[in-house]
Write a protein that binds this DNA or RNA. Structure first.
Lengths: 257, 257
DNA sequence: TTAATTGGTTTTATATTATAAAACTGCGTT
DNA sequence: AACGCAGTTTTATAATATAAAACCAATTAA
């Protein structure tokens, strides 16, 4: 049996704190743990030494410390999207036969960080690491549409609306209207704005902080696109994105007032 | 010396994981801690038992576990603004002699959740629990100016711009322009828009998630207000707000890609 | 004012248990 | 097939975690 008793006890103490009792007295802990109060005292002082526990000097009570937040944040930081998303993207690709892309925002551009090839003919040139402008791509729109006004303003400052096809949006006013629409619909699409003959649909992925941190997309030759197809694809993408988001901590106990 | 060695070692192991090495082998840990690998093994298994550590089954390496995130979130959740803000508000009130208010957003209105009376004559009727519209108050503007477009839209949907004084802003267009200005300046003010003869200056408080969760404000009789005074007050409020925000976890290692 | 209660801290002896050595398993490489 | 490497299990013993008792400080009761 490799369980170390004192460590085990220290960790169980951390678990005692809950919604209803965020501060505990030594004697409370000692009676609940069936340990002598001097033993609990030593355990607490050790935990306190590394800030896993803090003491309220006003009343002597103990509570969980900031170190837990710091380390906890680190865990989430290191849950990388790519590995979490992989199996979901494969599933969706399998189901539809299409190629699925995973894209993040870097500065003012999207960057493809993963793709899963489908059985259907490849219609869009892509490569992991490739960059794509936000103003003319479904993924770009999905990535920026949910940013705060400040962040969006920073991205659009001195933005160059380079024209890729005759359909490309080339001014801020139209682009903002387009983003409004993305927010309303919950998905983004480009209508041959990036490559003639190709249309792309994309939805955002959020993490524990509720911020959009990535987008997934599916591309279609334009002749296969119609109202019904768009709706179907958007629904499937949304479902997949929701599953990924959840696995990244989205909806895990929002912390607000 | 009340430090318990095995607990101390377990906690130090948790601290070994960092940005560059989020997964570690037992032998790595053992050499860095100057402990025998079987000792480290026991410690890890104990930590793993409560999910403070997880093992990557593909390569046998260990990494921080989800429990840390769970407990960390709990710490933040239980840090309540009021108690954290109190001493900062008292300090500012003492320094300036003015009454300081602490306000949060509830639905489409601000709610006063705390106030610290200054020595100067009271000029604004206020009471903890009192509600105040967002469109005609400095605190209201500070609370909503940094919301996402979606949240702001939800607040302003069917919003009634009730006129409180001849100076009250009574339409969305002007209000949005005003909010733009708040974002640009970093502080909000009302210019007798809520009560004739009184002007108020307010700045937002953010928490670990970087969202605005409250605002603090200082009120002045209008005859004491001028460019220089506004600037001075705004600076003091900003400094206080920054201190509170920091204590609430703002800037403690943002987690994004 | 003093006694009693409650809760946290410190000290200490001893019985428990954390530790490291050594042996074992399983995997990949040569 | 043999070697090296990493994780795991077992075991004896030396180290230390534990609880008892005493102490301190603050609050409440008499």
């Amino acid at each position: 049996m490799p369980i170390i008793q004192s460590v085990d006890r220290a960790l169980r103490i951390l678990d005692l704190f809950d919604e209803y009792e965020s501060e505990l007295k030594i004697t409370d802990i000692s009676s609940r743990m069936n340990l002598h109060k001097s033993t609990v005292h030593s355990l607490l002082k050790t935990l306190q030494h590394y800030n896993y526990i803090e003491q309220n000097l006003e009343n002597g009570k103990y509570k969980l410390g900031m170190k837990l937040f710091e380390r906890g944040n680190f865990v989430i930081h290191n849950l990388d999207i790519r590995s979490v998303a992989k199996k979901h993207l494969m599933e969706l690709s399998m189901k539809t036969g299409n190629t699925i892309h995973l894209v993040i925002l870097d500065g003012k551009e999207g960057v493809y960080i993963d793709k899963v090839e489908g059985s259907a003919a490849t219609i869009l040139y892509s490569r992991i690491g490739r960059r794509i402008p936000v103003h003319c791509s479904a993924v770009g729109k999905a990535l920026v549409a949910f940013k705060s006004q400040e962040e969006l303003a920073a991205i659009l400052k001195d933005y160059e609306y380079i024209s890729q096809t005759p359909k490309t949006i080339t001014n801020e006013k139209d682009f903002l209207i387009e983003l409004d629409n993305v927010r309303k619909e919950g998905f983004a699409m480009d209508n041959q704005e990036n490559e003639a003959g190709v249309s792309c649909i994309s939805v955002p992925i959020r993490d524990h902080s509720e911020h959009v941190i990535a987008a997934i997309s599916m591309s279609q030759p334009v002749h296969r696109i119609n109202k019904k197809a768009i709706k179907e694809i958007a629904e499937m993408l949304k479902e997949t994105a929701e599953n990924i988001s959840r696995e990244l901590g989205f909806g895990v106990k929002a912390s607000s007032i």
